[in-house]
Amino acid sequence: MKRPHIKVTTESARFLMSAYRPNGADAQDPVFKKALEQIGSDPGLAKWFNDQREFDEIVLERLNSVQPPPELKSAILTGVRTTMIHRERFQYRWLALAAILLISCFILGKFNFPHAANQFDAFQSDMLALFHPLPVLDLSTDSFEQTQQFLKANAAPTAPNVPEELRRMQTAGCKSLRWRGHMVSVTCFELPNGDFLHLFVVNKGTFADSPIPHGFLKNGDWHILFSESDGMVLMWMSRAPMNELRMLV
């Protein structure tokens, strides 16, 4: 009963040690550790192992005596240097192209697509242009409530949290329009002094993450104020004196 067990262990050791490199690089590999211990206690296995190592060493030595053609190394290095030069040139070309694209995008963005920070400027400029000459309103009514119902029915943004004083104020009417793909609504209030106050409402997402300008802005004889409420950006625009507007909004 013992012999078959010993024989299997020896066979296993021989099987494992066939993968043991003759230069001893695998000496620390735990896979070979037990097999090496077995070799130490089995003279027959030890002889086989010594013969095996000698065989491996001679084969290795003989195979290593086969030398590559003398010009091969220089041919490889020359070929590789050429490849590297091409690769670097190729990379530089890509870098140059990327730089050109970047500059082009910047220039195009500068002239055609206002930077996020300038989007409010563009918005107010475009809306001001709408009032030269005066726009044709979609709905003419003196009721603020009616303007909001009309805008809502036309899927245009309505004004949230409008001060009560303005709600009670008479309106000229309202209009909806598209600006760069976004719906914009405008409600026109008639101020007691005869001036108009125009309220533009647009979704805040229209301006991405750009910060809303603070305080009153002046554009020609127009006074402009931006505010934010319930995810909407409100732009108030009037020729009325600034302090009067301040009291209203």
């Binding site: 590559p68 053609p69 091969l72 590789v80 490849t83």
Partner: peptide, 18 residues
């Protein structure tokens, strides 16, 4: 084949360079 062997070796280093 010695010629093929040299070509294969060169090709391997060429790929390595890339």
């Amino acid at each position: 084949n010695e010629v093929d062997a040299a070509d294969l070796t060169q090709q391997t280093f060429f790929i390595f360079a890339q």
